[in-house]
Computed example of a mutant assay.
Amino acid sequence: MTSTDGSQTQPPVPVSPITDAWLVVPLYNESQVVRGVIEEARRTFPLVVAVDDGSKDDSAERAEAGGAVVVRHPLNLGQGAALQTGITYVLERTDARYLVTFDADGQHSVADAAAMVRAARDEDLAFVLGSRFLEGPSPVGRLKRLILKTAAVAASRTTGMHLTDAHNGLRVIRRDAAKQLDLRQNRMAHASEIVRQLGATGLPWREFPVHIAYTEYSKGKGQSLWNSINILVDLLFS
């Protein structure tokens, strides 16, 4: 292959599809982006279950058009409930060795998710937790960074695990660890609940550096600000 300056370059190395892991995508009113997010993810992760959590738009139809299996909640129950439904689907309907929790709004990196699955395989890890704060600068704003680090300190104290980011939605969970999850918290507190329940398994784990794309779409929804407020409320009252 020849580059624009005439030099020879190597063709890109094709990435083999990951077929021993399912993506679990909680979904609520993301019709603008979800089909593209799923189509891109399926180039690497062909197996995707999207849990439509009572969306008021056509998110479920768009996710299905993107190639996901769609499970529907008739009412909005919260992200924790959507994740538990997706986890239950993978455990009961498939023989997947891993599941990957993955957001529907395009913030997560498919390459990061694939690297985390490889780390779980290579290092025999039961779960791998994404962290925005392990390497390099993070695009997280000052207020949210403070809240997230406070949450990580609190989670570290309650679980005995050393965490730098307790509220990152990108996680790889091996089947034996997933079987021990029983999520009851439906708001932002579900993130701390997942960490507590996974830590209680005593199974091997580690954090993994990941990159979050805070897009104009997600900023327009006010997600970063509201998530910070919700995390703070749940820290105080959960």
Rank of each mutant, 00 (worst) to 15 (best):
M1F: 13
T2A: 01
S3N: 15
Q10T: 11
P11L: 10
P17H: 06
L23Q: 09
L23F: 09
V25E: 07
Y28G: 05
Y28H: 15
S31L: 07
V34C: 14
V34F: 11
G36D: 15
V37Y: 03
I38V: 14
A41N: 11
R42F: 11
V48W: 07
V49N: 10
A50G: 01
A50C: 03
A50W: 01
V51F: 12
K56N: 04
K56H: 05
S59E: 01
S59M: 00
E61V: 09
E61L: 12
E61K: 13
E61F: 02
A63W: 07
G67T: 07
G67R: 05
A68C: 07
A68M: 04
V69H: 15
H73Y: 15
H73L: 12
P74D: 13
G78T: 06
G80C: 05
Q84S: 14
D95W: 00
D95P: 00
D95V: 02
Y98S: 01
L99Q: 12
L99V: 11
V100Q: 07
F102C: 10
S109L: 06
D112L: 03
A113V: 04
A113Q: 09
A114V: 02
A114H: 03
A120I: 11
R121L: 00
R121Q: 03
L125H: 04
G130A: 12
L134P: 10
P137F: 02
P139S: 08
G141K: 13
G141F: 04
G141V: 12
L146D: 05
L148Q: 12
A152D: 03
A152F: 02
A154Q: 15
R157P: 00
R157Y: 05
T159W: 02
M161G: 00
L163P: 01
D165P: 09
G169D: 11
G169L: 09
L170T: 13
R171V: 14
A178L: 03
K179W: 01
Q180I: 01
Q180K: 14
L181M: 10
R187Q: 13
H190T: 09
Q197W: 03
T201C: 06
G202A: 00
R206K: 14
P209F: 01
H211D: 06
A213R: 14
Y214A: 03
Y217T: 11
K219I: 00
N227D: 15
I229L: 15
I231K: 01
L232W: 07
D234Q: 14
L236I: 06
